[in-house]
Design a protein around this nucleic acid. Structure first.
Lengths: 220, 220
DNA sequence: TCCTGTGAACATTTTCACAGCA
DNA sequence: TGCTGTGAAAATGTTCACAGGA
């Protein structure tokens, strides 16, 4: 017989990936209450999707009324673990890395970059967005000492795998990889480090398919 | 009765999104032939997935042997429409936009940025990565005259929706949106412009969930 | 024998439809 | 009555298992 955690049905990954969008929509709302329809319109998802996603974690709404904006925001922040504060490190302080750090400092609360690393002596020691760039050879100790759980990787493709393996050894929890190459494809055990890759080239090439009007089955 | 295009079963979107990864893997291969297992290892997908994806478009392999690297590359390039050349425009020549253009000039063939736009008089007229930044007010004519089908949007959130609507009016096919806000959520007709959003803040917040060890069901 | 191509089984995700509570 | 919460149905995507040609 089941007891305790009846709620612990597996949460779909796709649900988790939508929660931050709901959170942002709530933060942008001026009013005190909203509905699943309202949240759906603000995020581009369907109202059923919103209700189902939220219901995985409990009954946050009031039937006939809707959701309390402030309370639901706190709930989602708690679910995501943002209420604990999340520390991140950027590895590769080139143009892209610099832009990304500046960018998140403006728009994202709750996840904070606490360190930047590079291997270029010209860059090490400079301050970018209020953070002093350190030598990438310090990476393992920086990650361990500051208990950093998230890494954003903006190093050249040739360096990505080695850096990723070192991050794994340092005990990082997840890597957001911008290098145009798959990393950590054979982990032991698999999945101990979560890798999420964003690859501009691949995204653009996929979009090319959808905008091209040619016949795919005509001879190459 | 069905005749002609028997092959025109619907292609899964997820298949399309993997094709560029296969293409890159093929381009990095030194040898003349490979197999679905080889392509799987190079991309991180399963060999069954590779075979199924490719088989949607025809029989490109040879049983018992595998795939011809050069030929399969050409086939995928053709399927994606890359063999026609794809022109893209960047809107928002700030730090992030600049980094992205430089980045793709290095790593991505076949999709080419042919124009950059901004609204800052200080930036308009400057040359970035060999491209002269033009006034964003020229956008519609630039897109139409150069028959640009892809746009990358790196403008501030408050400007994103307006720019996106203008891009839609100009007849753009797809937008890769980096602004932290949903765009074109109510199109008429829906789906005439394909929108793909990449939102660093949302990605980081989602990863926060997977790396946090707290109990989601404990009180907030 | 080797590796592709593919129907069938399985898994996941989304949408539908409505019961149930304020 | 209005809007949430939720099983059931539908759609989508992945893995399995093997038939079949080189």
């Amino acid at each position: 017989m089941v007891h305790g955690r009846e709620h612990l049905r597996r949460i779909p990954e796709s649900t988790i990936r939508r929660l931050p969008a709901y959170l942002r929509a709530l933060e942008n709302l001026k009013c005190l209450r909203t509905t699943s329809v309202g949240l759906g319109e603000a995020t581009g998802y369907s109202s059923e999707q919103v209700r189902k996603d939220l219901a995985y974690f409990g009954a946050f709404g009031t039937r006939g009324v809707g959701y309390d904006v402030r309370d639901l925001g706190q709930q989602i922040r708690h679910i995501l673990g943002l209420d604990q504060g999340v520390r991140a490190v950027l590895v590769g302080a080139g143009h892209l890395g610099t832009a990304l750090v500046r960018y998140t400092q403006v728009s994202s609360g709750d996840v904070e970059f606490v360190a930047m690393l590079d291997n270029d002596p010209q860059v090490i020691g400079t301050t970018i967005g209020g953070i002093v760039v350190q030598d990438v050879r310090q990476m393992v100790s920086v990650v361990k000492e500051q208990t950093i759980r998230l890494a954003v990787l903006t190093v050249p493709a040739r360096a990505a795998e080695e850096v990723a393996q070192d991050l794994a050894k340092a005990g990082i929890g997840a890597i957001l990889n911008f290098a145009p190459v798959p990393i950590l494809t054979d982990q032991h055990p698999p999945g101990s480090v979560l890798v999420q890759s964003i690859d501009l080239t691949l995204e653009l090439q996929a979009l090319a398919y959808f905008v091209s009007e040619h016949d795919v089955f005509s001879p190459a």
